[in-house]
Nucleic acid binder design. Structure first.
Length: 270
DNA sequence: CGTATTCCCTGCACGC
DNA sequence: TGCGTGCAGGGAATAC
């Protein structure tokens, strides 16, 4: 389940293997992802030099002169660089064959992922109306405070709204709210500026830490072992409903907030 | 406009 | 052992 740190780790791992390479061929085995892969995409990418890979929210953009291949890993997607003769496995939907003798292979069992095309000089509709990057200077407690005024939704739903800040999924929303001592059920519009500053700091620190940890496990990205997973032993609340709070020992509460499984400590989070 | 709900899809844990 | 069921989740689409 790639969240922003996994996407960024993927970007960093792929970059040295694709930057400066030319695309020999693109093979679409299953174009029916969450949205259809544009049928003209293989033709557009063929022969192009890949200049680099950038990230916006949880999207990865593989840039060439003609435009960018826009990837999203969804829930279960992975992008890996493999030797060209690596046998296919179940759910290998797309290959981008490179002039290095390697292939960039997209695997996605649940097909919640995306591969779209963004012509050079344009911004894809899915990338418009996104909030700030959580690790950029545009993101801070003041921003969250201003945007949340008048909002009645639970603060956890607000934090996961891509218009408020991008890339904060269910796991990191739960962890950041715990770190900031804010109950996820609290009305977004009633959380104070001081507490939003704590929350923004927590989001930033937790994501940065996770990216750093991901980076340490990278080494050679050409590996059949897939992406580094979560550091489960470091999770304070996510997936621990009913278990004792690591801080106060009380039983962690569990409920659905905005249709998402949520866990928190009603003693440490107010 | 904001909010709540539904849906997409497969793998896996669970209970019988 | 094997089957059915429910759940997980990002985020777009839909309904209000």
């Amino acid at each position: 389940m790639p969240e922003l740190p996994e996407v960024e780790t993927t970007r960093r791992g792929l970059l040295p293997h694709v930057a400066g390479r030319h695309v020999r061929k693109v093979v679409l085995r299953r174009p029916d992802l969450r949205l259809p892969i544009p049928p003209e995409l293989p033709k557009l990418l063929r022969g192009e030099e890949i200049h680099g890979i950038t990230r916006r929210a949880k999207y990865l953009l593989m840039d060439s002169d003609r435009g960018s291949a826009l990837w999203h890993l969804g829930m279960s997607g992975s992008l890996r660089v493999l030797p060209a003769d690596t046998p296919l496995r179940a759910h290998d939907h797309v290959d981008v064959e490179l002039d290095s003798g390697h292939v960039l292979r997209f695997n996605d069992p649940r097909r919640f992922g995306l591969l779209l095309w963004q012509p050079a000089g344009t911004v894809h509709p899915l990338l418009q109306s996104l909030g700030p990057e959580p690790l950029s200077d545009d993101f801070d407690g003041d921003h969250l405070f201003r945007l949340s005024r008048g909002r009645s939704a639970p603060v956890k739903a607000f934090l996961m709204d891509q218009a408020a800040v991008v890339g904060v999924g269910n796991i990191y929303a739960a962890e950041a709210l715990f770190a900031a001592g804010i109950a996820p059920t609290r009305e977004a519009g009633k959380v104070s500026l001081d507490r939003y500053r704590k929350l923004a700091d927590a989001v930033r620190a937790i994501l940065a830490h996770a990216i750093e940890r991901g980076g340490t496990t990278l080494r050679d990205f050409i590996s059949p072992d897939g992406l580094p997973g979560y550091f489960e032993q470091e999770l304070q609340v996510y997936g621990r409903g009913g278990e004792p709070c690591r801080v106060c020992g009380r039983k962690l509460r569990e409920a659905r907030i905005g249709q998402r499984a949520s866990v928190w400590c009603s003693h440490c989070q107010k």
